[in-house]
Design a protein around this nucleic acid. Structure first.
Lengths: 227, 227
DNA sequence: TCCCAAACTGAAGGATGCTTCACATATTAT
DNA sequence: ATAATATGTGAAGCATCCTTCAGTTTGGGA
């Protein structure tokens, strides 16, 4: 992400040899592992270092303190996520609005599903630092991308694009997050994804194929978007 | 909440004199205050006790450990929230589905707004313990209440009520949570609430008054629900 | 009034965690 | 081969924090 981290949170140095790049990856991965296995409370520098197979001192060569590590981890994750959303939106420019919505939902949903545990781990890690700026930057990127996409739709009339955009983004992201924080069955998750799309379609004025909760056909476009 | 806390998290004793009841309240309030003012990392037993005007020892007469305190706090909050949702649902039995949705959204939104800082504080506190069981119990209560409400609607045909219900609850709660975690302007929040209702209405097959993002009239029912 | 139980106190014990730094090892360039 | 730089080590210092408990104060019934 272009977001320069505030000085206090910035990493200490970047790897110059292949060796240290691997170390850094190991540290990030270990952080996620510890978070997953033992939760936030057990996320100690010692444990992370141990799991990464390095000494604590090594960690402190890259990060001035624990918060900095967590910050970098979240930054990394949001960067990837934002890039995915942007790619999807770019690919959907000029398409019918129904396809746009299907693609956006599919992309975000898949990103959360691919490594659902990682997503949860990161949500938990957030408490260890002030991520407001990070989230804000992410939101702005997504906002710009979806706005550009939606306003290119040939078949939709948005009386107030900024509001409609804010609504769609908030609903889609909020719903998906909520879905993953509850322990829903695979079937429920699947159904929810379909229904969410139906809801968004109805919102932008596309007629529904059937009554709410009805069996629906998975839109073929929903697998098209970029990864 | 009827949810008996697991033995390890249960409080140590209940107050018998008026004095100790006041102390307990002070402890809860102080916990929220500290959470708000200094964040999760500063939530120490010493600080809470200090803010509550009692000694640490007093806290430990009521709670076997810190987690137990946080647990009780969340339990309290979710109990109130669940009760509000249940009251609203009960009051809407037999009403048109559009009114139901408006009332549900209004109730939940207001509950989050009333003491928005408290809501945020509690979201942050969650990391300190395993709240899965608590959230699960809350979800089940809400689920039962909304299901009963929706199936009594005279003007809606739900092909699959459980799915439609899950969708509506997940979307509404997820959206509201998401809206409050971002720093949105007062105006944006207001607009979002209106749009969310429009979206839910569209989902259940009610025609929209206008195009997405259009200026809408606040439904008069949205202020009716129980508190 | 007297007494017992409830409520409260807060210094101290014990544990854990973050971070540093003097030193060791590995890699690259000359 | 040697110097210079990059990378890695881990015991120890320092700071907190959680929790206990022996003793004090308060409230209410007999």
């Amino acid at each position: 992400m272009a977001t320069a981290a505030p000085a206090s949170l910035a990493p200490r140095k970047r790897p110059r040899q292949a060796r240290s790049a691997a170390t850094l990856d190991a540290i990030f991965e270990a952080t996620i592992q510890v978070l997953l296995a033992d939760g936030t409370r057990a996320l100690t520098t010692t444990r992370v270092a141990e799991r990464a197979g390095v000494s604590v001192g090594t960690m402190y060569q890259y990060f001035p303190h624990k918060q900095s590590l967590i910050f970098a981890l979240n930054e990394r994750y949001l960067e990837v996520l934002a890039a995915k959303v942007e790619a999807t939106c770019r690919a959907q420019i000029g398409k019918p609005v129904g396809e746009m919505l299907a693609a956006l939902i599919a992309t975000y949903w898949r990103a959360k599903t691919e490594r659902a545990e990682v997503t949860r781990a990161l949500y938990r890690s957030v408490v260890e630092m002030d991520n407001e700026a990070l989230v804000e930057a992410f939101a702005r990127r997504v906002d710009a991308a979806t706005t550009a996409m939606l306003e290119s739709a040939p078949d939709a009339a948005f009386a107030n694009l900024p509001i409609a955009n804010l609504t769609l983004v908030t609903v889609i992201f909020g719903t998906i997050r909520n879905a993953f924080e509850r322990n829903l069955s695979e079937a429920a998750i699947e159904a929810l994804q379909v229904e969410l799309l139906a809801m968004c379609r109805a919102y932008v004025g596309l007629a529904q194929h059937s009554a709410p909760g009805q069996e629906r056909h998975q839109c073929r476009h929903s697998r098209e978007s970029a990864g």
